[in-house]
């Protein structure tokens, strides 16, 4: 665990709180892509199936392999899962009438199918858990695409939405730094799957980062994209 990794996780956690706070405070999820949020629930569901492994060790009192890092990861995984499901739940129940569904036109199969095929071909081990983990890594990299498309469609995002986008994009960028740091300091075989996907994910946010900083510098309330 290094400073970049912990900062990344906290930024990721912050992103959920920003989004939930925004939706609760404004009683609206306008400008937020339901499809992107739905993809995040799928990402975490596929990636964190090893929670059952930890649960199995706990209920059999097999604590020998449970380290501080396991407990930290387990705690965060449960939080991420709970937060992402709660967001999807909010967007489909009390905030449904404010949802931008009509403009949220991205076709999910266009990312789901390639990610599934890639996960079946490029994986570290041909097991169900490993393939689902790999699928989740690929899907997370591109899951923001419906959100970006909605942002381009509407041409602007309110302040909290753009802070949310910054937090989600920044988290993976910090993970890139974490991987470089680990590569340099640990006898750690590099995980090319995560590296490449993480790079793609951060690159997808690159354009957004640029407009975010321009907006912050100019002190505008809303982020406006050039049309």
């Amino acid at each position: 665990m290094n400073i970049f990794r912990i900062s990344a996780d906290l930024l990721h956690l912050a992103s959920f709180f920003i989004l939930i706070f925004k939706m609760k405070a404004t009683k609206s999820c306008k400008g937020i892509s339901f499809k992107t949020q739905l993809m995040y629930t799928l990402v975490f569901t596929c990636r964190y199936l090893d929670l059952f492994h930890v649960l199995g060790m706990m209920i059999t009192f097999n604590f020998a392999h449970i380290t501080g890092l396991t407990l930290y990861n387990t705690f965060m995984k449960i939080l991420f899962l709970a937060a992402s499901y709660y967001i999807v739940y909010l967007m489909r129940t009390e905030l449904k009438s404010t949802s931008d569904d009509a403009r949220d036109t991205f076709v999910l199969w266009h990312i789901l199918a390639p990610c599934a095929v890639l996960a079946l071909i490029f994986n570290a081990q041909f097991t169900i858990l490993e393939i689902l983990w790999t699928f989740s890594i690929y899907l997370e990299a591109v899951a923001v695409m419906p959100q970006l498309m909605l942002l381009i469609e509407t041409g602007e995002a309110d302040s909290l939405s753009s802070h949310y986008m910054f937090a989600v994009g920044g988290y993976r960028a910090l993970y890139l730094v974490n991987w470089v740091y680990r590569y340099a300091t640990e006898p750690y075989y590099s995980n090319w799957i995560a590296w490449i996907a993480g790079f793609v994910q951060t690159a997808l946010f690159g354009d957004f980062f640029y407009y975010y900083f321009v907006k912050i510098m100019s002190g505008d309330a809303a982020l406006k994209l050039p049309t």
């Binding site: 392999h65 965060m76 570290a124």
Partner: peptide, 10 residues
Amino acid sequence: AAAADDHDEL
């Protein structure tokens, strides 16, 4: 080995 346990990141 590349078992799921080896994924020590989130």
